[in-house]
């Protein structure tokens, strides 16, 4: 479809016949030789006032979150809330089933006591915390995601091999395609291009 849209976009037709995304862009992507070049380009870009940046690399790079100005992930807060919910649920479960719904004395033990409930409290805390961690991670990363506009970059495959890509996104208030291309080229990009949304 993308190819067909592109052909239609190029035809001398009235604007209302063209694809609705025509003229919309994801941003400008440039590619760099090494992680150090990429980190330097990110720092220069932020110093120049760009704020909507995204990096695509074949492996995690130390310090890239700080360079991009990313804050801490809220995942930890999701996990603690889920963990405490599991803890509360376990206490209620042990107390309600043992002492309220079906009170039965076993081996002379109290109907409800913390000693035998701790393993259940521990397990349910861990279980819900793990659910929170996995599902929260997927949600925060917007996964599963089958399409991303960055795939339209002509040298995208490099990001999974040996190239280090930097995108200046179109939603950046300072964004201008020509300036961004010039900027990335000056920062050491081998190939900078405007990428469709």
């Amino acid at each position: 479809m993308a190819t067909l849209d592109r052909i239609i976009d190029r035809l001398p037709l009235p604007a209302f016949l063209k694809h609705e995304d025509a003229g919309k862009h994801y941003g400008v992507i440039g590619d760099f030789d090494t992680p150090e070049d990429l980190l330097r380009a990110i720092r220069t870009a932020r110093a120049a006032g760009y704020s909507k940046l995204e990096a695509y690399t074949p492996f995690p790079i130390h310090g890239i979150d700080e360079a991009l100005g990313e804050g801490r992930s809220p995942l930890g807060k999701i996990v603690i809330v889920c963990g405490l919910a599991g803890l509360t649920l376990a206490i209620l479960l042990q107390w309600w089933t043992g002492a309220i719904d079906y009170p039965l004395v076993v081996a002379g033990k109290p109907l409800f006591a913390f000693e035998p409930s701790v393993p259940i409290m521990f397990e349910l805390s861990v279980l819900l915390a793990a659910f929170g961690a996995v599902l929260g991670m997927l949600a925060l990363n917007k996964l599963p995601q089958y399409y991303h506009p960055a795939f339209n970059y002509s040298k995208w495959a490099g990001a999974t091999n040996d190239r280090f890509l930097l995108a200046i996104e179109a939603k950046d208030p300072r964004f201008s395609a020509e300036e961004a291309i010039t900027f990335l080229n000056a920062a050491g990009s081998r190939h900078s291009e405007l990428v469709e949304a």
């Binding site: 033990k109 000693e115 035998p116 701790v118």
Partner: peptide, 9 residues
Amino acid sequence: QYMLIWYGN
């Protein structure tokens, strides 16, 4: 250690 001993009593 505590729980097993508490349970066994």
